[in-house]
Design a binder for these strands. Structure first.
Length: 419
DNA sequence: GTTGAGCGTT
């Protein structure tokens, strides 16, 4: 029997009624008679989402064999551009979703004796664990000294990654495993603040940037180097500010990405060779310096580092990442080259970059790097930026998360004004 | 019974 179906192409307009055929189907041509170029119908289901109407041989079929009393919306073909935009939107939505998803975390530096039970006992204080593994040698069943965990809740994961962990007397690192490509986006919550002046304090930065979201850390290198880092709890907030200029205490500062782990200073993923990251020239030398500095558990087989390498005092690894990738200035270049030639000088005597005179190169703008390609490939391993905020260098305004700061001495804390 | 910058036989 013929049914009249309420149809509109604008939810704010009054619908018009168009007739179905005797068999209950609605001819697309009938629909197009009222709505030229229409190619289909959709309606809202109970949960508020759209549901499409089946179209076959030019006939629209009623859902569940009857046209409901609801208003059906006309669907028009998308033009190519609109479609493209929608797809882009989908991609960014997907990305956003991915950023909030838990991933497996690798736990490095476990005591040989640690078991799954030990890990579960330790990490369950951060939240529900969906996975706990200690990797073992198949033959001997000996622990390989690392394992994997996974939380059920993203916030718990973030909390866990934000602190250092002492398990049975060993400092362990929890981070996104290398095998999990792209997951570093999960933790890019830190931005690089360029063009700071010396009178801008960590509190100034915190007070200013907290209007955009929760600020969990501010780091200002000492001695003054005209830049700072601000870490938000929400990576979306960090992303949203990147590329912008902001006025803090009357000073225009520039916000950009703090170079994430595993990328070069242009944000590109590094080339790998034999499983090792390869960099040439002074950049590599400087990165080696980063590597050395970040080995906070002394390495017995020190053959990678034939000579002691000095490092700038008061410079945490996460800063050095950004410095090596964003701020490759001549003084550092000279130091890196000197290091290559075994003439490493004293970093403490290095002049900081002249503020306001030679601003750091912007992301994406190539910086000339002298050819020192005779430099041996180095294995680059970064300190995870998320735990570096808890390290003892520089000025942090926020108290690190509780739970695992056995490495902190009382005097550390007092120096930081935190006790 | 040793070791420590190590990234996952699912």
């Amino acid at each position: 029997m013929v049914q009249y179906i309420q149809v509109t192409d604008d939810e704010n307009e009054e619908p018009i009624e168009i007739p179905s055929e005797e068999d209950g189907t609605l001819l697309l041509s009938t629909l197009a008679g009222q709505f030229p170029n229409a190619c289909g119908l959709k309606y809202r289901n109970q949960s508020g989402g759209f549901r499409g109407i089946r179209l076959s041989d030019g006939r629209l079929h009623p859902p569940d064999n009857t046209w409901k009393a609801c208003v059906y919306l006309v669907v028009y073909p998308k033009d190519a551009k609109q479609k493209e935009e929608d797809e882009e939107e989908d991609e960014s939505q997907k990305l956003k979703k991915a950023e909030k998803k838990c991933s497996d975390l690798i736990v490095l530096g476990l005591p040989w004796k640690s078991t799954e039970d030990d890990l579960r006992n330790y990490f369950s204080k951060f939240g529900e664990l969906l996975l706990v593994q200690v990797k073992r040698d198949q033959k001997t069943n000996q622990s390989k000294g690392y394992g994997f965990i996974r939380f059920g809740n993203y916030e718990d994961q973030i909390k866990c990654m934000n602190v250092r962990h002492n398990i049975d007397g060993r400092w362990c690192d929890v981070t996104i495993p290398n095998s999990n490509e792209g997951a570093h986006k999960l933790i890019s919550r830190k931005v690089f603040i360029a063009r700071c002046t010396e009178d801008i304090t960590a509190d100034d930065l915190k007070n200013y940037f907290c209007q955009f979201g929760e600020v969990v850390d501010v780091f200002i290198p000492k001695p003054f180097r005209s830049f700072a880092f601000v870490t938000f709890s929400d990576p979306d907030v960090a992303h949203s500010l990147c590329g912008e200029d902001h006025i803090v205490k009357g000073v225009s500062v520039h916000v950009s990405y703090a170079a994430p782990k595993g990328t070069d200073r242009f944000g590109e993923k590094k080339a790998q060779q034999n499983g090792q990251v390869v960099q040439k020239g002074a950049a590599g030398a400087y990165t080696q310096l980063v590597n050395h500095h970040t080995n906070w558990q002394p390495h017995k087989n020190n053959h990678q580092y034939p000579k002691p390498i000095p490092f700038p005092p008061n410079m945490p690894p996460h800063e050095m990442n950004a410095v090596s990738f964003n701020l490759f200035n001549s003084a550092m270049m000279a130091a890196a080259q000197a290091m290559l030639q075994g003439q490493a000088g004293n970093w403490a005597h290095m002049a900081p970059p002249p503020p306001q005179v030679a601003p750091p190169p912007q992301a994406g703008v190539p910086v000339s790097v002298p050819d020192t390609s005779q430099a041996a490939p180095v294995h680059v391993s970064y300190a995870p930026p998320q735990s570096s905020s808890a390290w003892g260098w520089g000025h942090h305004t926020t108290e690190p998360q509780p739970g695992s700061y056995a490495g902190w001495t009382q005097s550390n804390r007092q120096q930081q004004g935190w006790s």
